[in-house]
């Protein structure tokens, strides 16, 4: 079983007829993703990219059996779109939209908390299971099929990791771009856990950035599980200036795990294969697997 999305996923695109939605829906269809339609309020009944347009997510679920949704709705309306998808019974919501107000995301995350749904993002490149489904904006050809899972906060760095893994003679099982916003649906630990439980994944690349404590939390969890699969870790921002984003109070909540150095140390202590240079991700993975 692959993770989050596969060839059986019935995908809808929220914000289907907008320019971003149109372009990326086209790319996803070309990749072979099973896109069953899209949602644009007020345009229900029309056809776009040869697929049906629905007024509501509920209509898309009822009439097309949609179970995965990707969101390209503009930031001011994106949190509402997430809640609509969750309410309609969508199982996996992937929010690509960048720039959603934090207050809106606090509300949306609270709303979906007790529902049977996984939110990935927002502000993320999406999820891809090579040769099955691309539900995101990543260049599909970079992600050749294999047995390495990737979890990353950053878009282009995910592509970089995938490219190196492929060039090392390995390949990708599922890559999950979790997004870099202050409030995201799926944490590093939750994404790592999905890949640890996936029988098509042998090892994991975990890419983080300065800020927050997601990577430390994930590393400690991996160790608590007895390091069942090798994990290669990288934290971007070893040279980034401190405190550029948040003020004093933020640094306290973030705790001492906040810097790249601190995170890398924790990851190493937890038995991860930590690389200092992002150029070494592929080769290190090869070695970790004894290849």
């Amino acid at each position: 079983m692959s993770v989050l999305v596969n060839k059986n996923s019935k995908v809808i695109v929220q914000g289907f007829t907008g320019s971003e939605g149109t372009f990326h829906a086209g790319q996803m269809i070309e990749y072979g993703t099973n896109v069953v339609g899209g949602v644009t309020p007020g345009k229900g009944g029309q056809t776009h990219l040869d697929k049906p347009v629905f007024n509501t997510v509920q209509d898309a679920v009822d009439q097309a059996g949609a179970d995965v949704s990707i969101i390209f709705v503009p930031p001011a309306f994106a949190a509402d779109a997430i809640m609509e998808a969750a309410d309609a019974g969508i199982k996996v919501i992937i929010a690509v939209t960048e720039g959603i107000p934090t207050k809106d995301m606090v509300t949306a995350k609270e709303y979906i908390k007790d529902k049977d749904v996984v939110l990935v993002g927002p502000n993320c490149p999406g999820v891809i299971t090579p040769e099955e489904a691309k539900v995101g904006i990543m260049p599909g050809f970079v992600f050749k099929k294999g047995r390495i899972g990737i979890v990353s906060k950053s878009g282009t760095l995910t592509y970089e990791a995938a490219d190196q893994v492929v060039k090392a003679g390995l390949g990708v099982s599922t890559a999950i771009g979790i997004g870099g916003d202050p409030i995201i649906g799926t944490s590093t630990k939750q994404a790592v856990q999905l890949l640890m439980e996936d029988d098509e994944t042998d090892a994991i690349v975990m890419i983080g950035e300065i800020g927050g404590n997601y990577e430390a939390e994930a590393a400690r969890w991996i160790q608590s599980q007895g390091n069942p699969k090798p994990v290669v870790g990288f934290i971007a921002g070893q040279t980034a200036p401190k405190g550029k984003r948040m003020g004093h109070a933020g640094a306290i909540i973030g705790g001492a795990d906040d810097t790249a150095a601190a995170k890398m140390k924790i990851m190493e202590e937890c038995g991860l294969h930590v690389v200092a240079s992002p150029a070494d991700i592929g080769e290190t993975m090869k070695k970790a697997l004894g290849k």
């Binding site: 950053s154 878009g155 760095l157 970089e160 921002g237 040279t239 200036p241 550029k244 240079s277 992002p278």
Partner: peptide, 26 residues
């Protein structure tokens, strides 16, 4: 964001940009 070093960089994506800064240092 201006910093004090000697190698400039231009990158697409914030994560890759930070990773590129790290490469310069290494």
């Amino acid at each position: 964001v201006k910093l004090d070093g000697n190698v400039g960089c231009m990158v697409n994506g914030a994560g890759l940009a930070m990773a590129t800064m790290d490469i310069i240092k290494l």
